[in-house]
Simulated scan of single mutants.
Amino acid sequence: MKKSIILLAMMAASGSVLALGPKVHYADLNVREVVKTDDVGVTAVDEFKVDGITIELTREDKVKAKNWNLSRSDWAKYKYIMEYTPRGAWSPDLDPPIALGIEAETRAEQEKYAKLANQLEWERRQKELGFQSVGIDMLVHISPGLFDKEVDEGLSQWLPDKRKVLRSVFISRVDCDFKCQDFLFSTVANKGADTHVVIYTDQSHDYVYSLYARSGWKYSALQEKGVEIKVDPEKMAEISKTVNQSPPFYVQQKSLDSSENIIRVMRR
């Protein structure tokens, strides 16, 4: 990845255009239904043609498509993307709407899948928070006074897994180029074990996922690190004004005393 960035930088600096070999092939992702009629005249659409490849949907595929709120033709396209294009090797753990959105060919398609992905993410969070609330209620019922104990001073009382450090990374879509992406990746990858990372963006969760996906990172890597993503343009504007910096930058906190904050800004 770094070699590619250096090459692009050299090209930009020199103003020259290098011959990089044959033009990259882009798969034709138009989906065509294959309609079949049996001996008694019953028609069914269980097969689709994508880029000349026949994609057959099993009963399990149809159930998965329904549960992901995707059409059968969407699921056929998703199967094609993950099995026959580099995306399947680059990002094998992508959720179907995100894979479809990244490989979408029009703005309308991107918006369609982004809306679906955000809706699913919202529903997931609501269900998990609802269950967590019930779990806390049960703990209080079983062990009255459990949460009346003195809490630790500092940030750990608000951070997951009692972590002691909060690192807030601020990324804007407006100018997040390769250098910005490297700043994001290194900031997340080089965090300490006791550090909780929150990525703030003025775009969608999909935007951050797509940055990682395009660079060969797996979505599961973010999950494993417990990285949280928040879409909050107002918070970004407020913090940018407070620290007098524009994204990308991060603020690291070890206590509630703002004078102890550490601020790191990407070198431009």
Rank of each mutant, 00 (worst) to 15 (best):
G41E: 13
L29V: 02
G101F: 03
S215L: 03
K62D: 09
K179F: 02
V140C: 05
A117D: 15
N67K: 10
Y113G: 11
E228Y: 02
F178N: 13
P96G: 08
K254S: 12
D177A: 08
A76T: 05
A189F: 02
I229A: 11
K162I: 00
L94F: 00
K77G: 01
G52A: 10
G41S: 11
A27D: 15
V140F: 00
F249T: 05
G52R: 07
F48K: 04
D257L: 08
D232Q: 08
V134A: 14
L18P: 02
R32W: 00
T201E: 13
K254Q: 10
Q132F: 06
N30T: 10
S246V: 12
I239A: 05
F131I: 13
T106D: 08
W217K: 13
S186L: 07
L155W: 01
A9Y: 01
A108L: 09
V169W: 02
R214E: 14
V208M: 07
K225E: 15
F249W: 07
K127F: 00
Q157E: 13
P86H: 06
T201Y: 03
D161N: 14
A9M: 10
E47K: 14
W122A: 12
K3A: 10
L8R: 14
D28Y: 01
W75M: 12
A13I: 07
V265W: 03
I142E: 14
G145R: 05
D137I: 02
R264E: 15
S91N: 13
Q203A: 15
F178M: 11
A89G: 04
V45Q: 05
P160W: 02
I5Y: 10
F131V: 13
D257S: 05
G192N: 09
S133K: 12
V227F: 05
T54E: 13
L8F: 01
E238P: 00
S210Y: 04
P248S: 14
D74V: 05
E121D: 09
K77H: 00
I199H: 06
D161C: 02
E224F: 03
E103Q: 13
K66D: 12
A193W: 00
Q110F: 01
S168W: 01
E83G: 01
V197E: 12
I55C: 03
L222I: 03
S215P: 00
I262P: 00
I102N: 05
P247Q: 11
A189L: 14
L139M: 12
R173Y: 06
V197R: 07
K49N: 15
K179N: 11
I262V: 14
L20T: 11
I263Y: 02
S215G: 02
R87I: 13
K79L: 15
L57R: 10
M266C: 09
V17A: 06
D257K: 08
G154C: 10
T85L: 06
R268D: 08
P233L: 12
N30H: 08
T54D: 09
L211I: 11
H205W: 04
P22A: 14
F249G: 07
L211C: 08
S258L: 14
I6T: 09
Y80H: 04
C180H: 05
G101N: 04
